[in-house]
Design a protein around this nucleic acid. Sequence first.
DNA 1: CGGCAAACCTGCGAGC
DNA 2: TGCTCGCAGGTTTGCC
Length: 273
Amino acid sequence: MPELPEVETVCRGLKQAVENAVVRHVVTRRGDLRVPFPPDLEKRLAGRTLESIDRRAKYLQFHFSGGKVLLIHLGMSGRFLVEPSKPAAFGKHDHLVIELKDGRFLVFNDARRFGLAALTTEKKLPDHPLLHALGPEPFSKEFSADYLRKQLEARRGPVKPALMDQALVVGVGNIYASEALFQAGILPDRACRSVATESAAITRCIRKVLKAAIASGGSSLRDFLHITGYAGDFQHKFYVYGRAGKPCRVCKTPIQSSRQAGRTTFFCTSCQR
DNA sequence: CGGCAAACCTGCGAGC
DNA sequence: TGCTCGCAGGTTTGCC
């Protein structure tokens, strides 16, 4: 589910719903995800105030009183649910349950268990191993046409996997790499070096696509007042992703798909060169 | 070092 | 209806 727009949508939903809530009790129902939950998670968070929630790359950052920070990555299938009261039963994949003092329950659910939870402190956050090697945020000044041009000139392989490399720029995954390259009119298997001159268009299109997706995710969130998660409607606006064989929305040429670095890639051979 | 496939794990839809 | 197969929005590891 989650690339930057989805994580941002979840983040905004959680912010509105549970910022400043106080933790009464934490239960790890099943902690053996790809990266196991910290063993002392329950003790460390009990009684603390959830002072703020924000996002870095595809990580959610929960800032608790006393300088504790909970990092959550949603993996492929991670979701957050805010229940108004104790659910009659928890789901099979409700791995982390945070009971709030006001009676609500914050539940982290992840069917595929590719997600991750890590505990750290404000002090250690800047140099945290999970965040340390991450590239710039796509909406930051640092992610400039000049920066991208230099990065692309220094790389050998095709451009699409490069855009998905979180060390180059964060938040772009398989969907938005395909969509951004469509918008930029660049075929995904073009060599990085050969598209370096088009870095201005690429940065612009990445921002444009992510921004539009966030706008879609945010609007559907209104329909789910206390349930945040995958509820956006941007999937109906894809130009290429998941549209193999269907006519291009711009030129009617059938959309093609291929396999790049283990991921399916979608493109229009007429609109993209 | 860079780039790719495989692995991690479960669910779901397509096809038989 | 029920089975098997292939595939899924991410990241890490290990191999050329």
